[in-house]
Design a protein around this nucleic acid. Sequence first.
DNA 1: ACCCGTCTGTGCGCTAGGACACATATATGG
DNA 2: CCATATATGTGTCCTAGCGCACAGACGGGT
Lengths: 237, 237
Amino acid sequence: MSVSVRPTVPTENRLLGALPAEEYERLLPQLQPVAFSLGEVVYEFGGHLDYVYFPTTAIVSLLYTMENGSSAEMGLTGNDGVVGIALFMGGGTMPNRAVVQSAGGAIRMKAKVLQEEFARGEKFQRLLLRYTQALITQISQTAVCNRLHSVEQQLCRWLLLSHDRVKADELIMTQELIADMLGVRREGVTVAAGRLQDSGAISYVRGHITILDRQRLEETVCECYRVVKDEFDRLLG
Amino acid sequence: MSVSVRPTVPTENRLLGALPAEEYERLLPQLQPVAFSLGEVVYEFGGHLDYVYFPTTAIVSLLYTMENGSSAEMGLTGNDGVVGIALFMGGGTMPNRAVVQSAGGAIRMKAKVLQEEFARGEKFQRLLLRYTQALITQISQTAVCNRLHSVEQQLCRWLLLSHDRVKADELIMTQELIADMLGVRREGVTVAAGRLQDSGAISYVRGHITILDRQRLEETVCECYRVVKDEFDRLLG
DNA sequence: ACCCGTCTGTGCGCTAGGACACATATATGG
DNA sequence: CCATATATGTGTCCTAGCGCACAGACGGGT
């Protein structure tokens, strides 16, 4: 992670951008832009956090890794959220990992500053709690989707959720990593992605996935995507 | 749901029981014991809630039902938690259902009272937020468990989580309902339960499941149970 | 005692996805 | 321009769990 001192543009993050002027002014000196690289670990299982991160262009996945090494994603955070909810929820740590899934920028804030501002009970607190509720919906829907839907549908959901949080139509992501996120085999992703490519929805070469036909993905995806998207829009829109 | 006017015993619920005397005294007049019957719906998908409920002996499952009617559980709440987190998280409603999974008592509190007390930013707020964080862990682990573990392991997890939240060794619960909770077929539950019965861990007849050998269940269950239990103990213990 | 609705047991064919084994293609650095 | 690590494609066998069909088995009400 590299730290920069150039002026921040907090409105690139929807939570910070929704703050009223007064609170925003108060926090501005405490905000610091950082750059995350692909695969960087934001926090480990049970690990302590000194900062919370408000992604701007980066995407961070919340993962759980089993004792036997297999893993699965519980949710992902982009410029509509914050990484490190345990710091204001009161637990300090979470029993999962946060890994950068798409390289890019974020804005960080010291844990203590966050907690003090949260304790004021103003707009910032309400925004963080509403985001957390949206995250709960996302995690829940992941639980249900894991149980009831095909790998191809889940891949669509994952691509759409990622696409919503990134400017470009191209995602830098190998099938191996997607398999870890979805908790399936890499070969399973290969065949599912192959079908989506045949249908013209996406194309991909060696870690570069391009969304060609978003409409088509939305036709293939299960209802889980819509539920999550609607809830984010309702709570944070 | 039947409402009673007899004196409450809030300490039957761990969240209320953890309140300092001052806050507890303030809330006491606002608490009202109620009785839930098996299968009762506490709230519907997107439905409004007038009260939050602190279960004492009841257990409430949070379920999501798909468009095609299949369903799966995201988490369950007993005397260590509260039903209706959307009321203090700010969203008002949740895109899921809450159904009474084990008949019993709860203590209810008007939404407005909850919100005012929450806004004070004292111990009550911290307790509710820590519980919510524990719930997030439970939902996450459900997501992962759904993906990676067998029906038999999940059944063990479900039995243990329920057993932890109930006084008795007997659970009133048909295999049909368990199947809905776990998001699997009823027949799948029958064979998994049959194996557990053969091993002497449980016995069951027509909707009455008895935990005979808890130790044995803990040996069969996946790590997910432990992760959830440890996190609840850490955050609320 | 009986009936009928509710629970549970079991069998069979089917499919998605896992484990494993390779084959092939594409960077990228020396 | 080659070597090698990395990414992707395929194929084969195996298992868990699904859908469906139906057969007991218990139990409460008339």
